[in-house]
Design a protein around this nucleic acid. Structure first.
Lengths: 341, 341
DNA sequence: CCTATCGTCCAAAACGTTTCGGATCAACGA
DNA sequence: TCGTTGATCCGAAACGTTTTGGACGATAGG
């Protein structure tokens, strides 16, 4: 292994100056800098991360901690996340540590160990919750992180997110504009912040249209095909409130819902109008449904590179506004909404 | 962050002695050792990995390098591998680095960087090839590794593998014992070592039964459903050699093959006898085929924990025979072989 | 001519750990 | 009584890097 001292001997310079040259500090002549870089390349010099970390307090490693091996249904998403993060971080020369915790232990212990030992100096946080314990811990430990999504205000932390409130407001607004007044909303899990934001958006759209919110039409729940099916039967089956339109939180819910409609003999959009938010989940596309569904549209896949870039910038000490990215949301109108004037 | 010096002050001991106590060295009294451990726990001491690595030359981190984001069909397997490795290594207190290389660059560069910078001190190697460049590099760089599978002899390196030669010999032997003499073999990719071992096993079984190998009945190829289908049409379609039995390298190949048989109007085992090696790939189970297939049987999933354990032992300097594990292979006879006496 | 300033350089300290080479002391056998 | 041995301890060096606090000339300004 070539060290700084090796380089300094080769060049007839002090170790100090070689270090400063390699790190592009100001007080080294252009000529020297060039020579140092060249010789470093020739000798295949790689700075020793441990030594660097020891003095700077940073290892350059970034990490993702998951509470356990993902469930079968999440496989494709897991590969997308982990693959994209690792690949992007690799391009920036930053090793990516994937820590899959023992389901039996508290994830916080994993964060504690990884940060205290100095192994990792920044984390990507997925699936943030309302009062997220990980965020609380990393904040007190003063360890950089980036959240996929947001937590409660104030938003004084790095994140990548979309405008979830706006998404729900837009989708609901499409339905009120078409004259619907009894609109169901199949939302995500109650603990998840985006679901709460979307609820606000749903309510805002209803209020704007002068529609009173009807109890039972908004449902928190897991965003799975099974849940969509159950919700469909509960809302449109025997004794259900039978709303005339519905907003689906994602396309898995929509898929389940359409199967319920099929069983109940309901047709879209004749009997029920359906709109959906499309994350471009692998394997379920709203345009492939029958009928194709009107949808807001923002691929989750677009977020991962941002997370990598933001986190890298965060550990390098970048300031806040640059570390907050809000993804674009598109809208595609298809044939799943009927006007009821 | 609590350091060794903090502990030493608290305990009235030298840093040296604290270090030796924590690492359970011989020359520290049982009493002292106990006190040190207790105080360390109380103060939440975590050894600084960078400092440790700097002096020992080891970081404790183990890694897996992949050439790119896996293809859709490999998702489930990827999750299984990465999840199991990370989880098992986490239990041993060893951070797991997943490096997904840029497909544009040479993977060897990734290994070079990760080892030279001292970030990682051991690798899991998947999908070994005949003259594997990664193995060559890691050997010269004197970096520990463990191979899932084996390369050419001599087998003087850590590995987890099954007896691939034996698998092919056993499966082929079942067919010769049932009186078959024209036996096809849908094998894996030519560059892969296990495929070569299996070819040897196939030939050994034929020789033992006094059967001459017929050209064109053995096929190297990717182990996909598509390849099974193509092979089926090529071997049993118009102008094909129409063997009376076939050995499938895995259940994906078998699935494709059975679809070809279906299209060609062939029935198993009436027209063709089929045996398969079952890795327990997620999603394709030979017992669920029609008819259920006779199979040798060795879940790939059993290998990942071994790889984690072997690699951890290898970087700790364990000696060879203990680092070579051969997985068990079972055999389940089902209704897919017909005797042709 | 003297002092400031600037550009370029360097020696030494520091980071937290492990390890080498002893030091100390009590117990023991000769 | 005197080495010997063994158990337990410690100081100091080392690992490779960054950073601090200056040194040294050369140039410019007064």
């Amino acid at each position: 292994m070539t060290t700084l001292r090796d380089l300094s001997r080769h060049l007839g310079l002090s170790v100090t100056q070689v270090s400063r040259a390699l790190n592009n500090h100001a007080d080294v002549s252009a000529d020297t800098r060039e020579r140092v870089h060249r010789v470093a390349r020739e000798l295949g010099y790689q700075p020793n991360v441990s030594a660097r970390r020891l003095v700077t307090g940073r290892s350059g490693m970034l990490g993702l901690v998951l509470p356990g091996i993902p469930a079968e249904a999440e496989n494709a998403m897991f590969v997308q996340i982990v693959g994209t993060l690792s690949q992007h971080l690799a391009r920036m020369g930053r090793p990516f540590v994937l820590h899959i915790a023992d389901p039996a232990e508290d994830v916080l212990d994993a964060y504690r160990r990884l940060t205290a030992s100095g192994a990792i100096d920044g984390f990507v946080l997925l699936d943030p919750e309302i009062r997220d314990r990980r965020v609380a811990f990393l904040r007190t430990a003063d360890v950089p992180f980036v959240i996929h999504g947001r937590i409660e205000e104030p938003h004084d932390y790095p994140f990548y997110d979309i405008d979830n409130r706006g998404v729900a407001e837009r989708l609901t607004g499409l339905l009120t504009a078409a004259g619907h007044r009894r609109i169901a909303f199949l939302n995500g899990p109650k603990r998840r912040t985006y679901a709460v934001s979307r609820l606000h958006g749903y309510r805002a759209a209803l209020a704007r249209a002068g529609v009173a919110e009807e109890a039972g039409l908004h449902r928190f729940g897991p965003m799975t095909e099974g849940e969509g099916l159950l919700a469909g039967v509960a809302l449109w089956g025997e004794g259900g409130p039978r709303p005339t339109a519905v907003v689906c939180g994602n396309s898995r819910l929509a898929a389940g819902l359409l199967r319920a409609f099929d069983a109940l003999g309901l047709r879209v959009p004749r009997d029920v109008s359906v709109v959906v938010h499309d994350d471009e989940l692998p394997g379920v596309r709203p345009q492939a449904f029958d009928p194709p569904l009107t949808a807001t549209w923002s691929p989750l896949a677009l977020g991962w590179p941002h997370l990598a870039q933001i986190l890298a910038a965060a550990v390098d000490g970048a300031a806040l506004p640059a570390l907050q990215v809000q993804g674009e949301v598109g809208l595609v109108e298809r044939a799943s909404v009927r006007s009821v004037s």
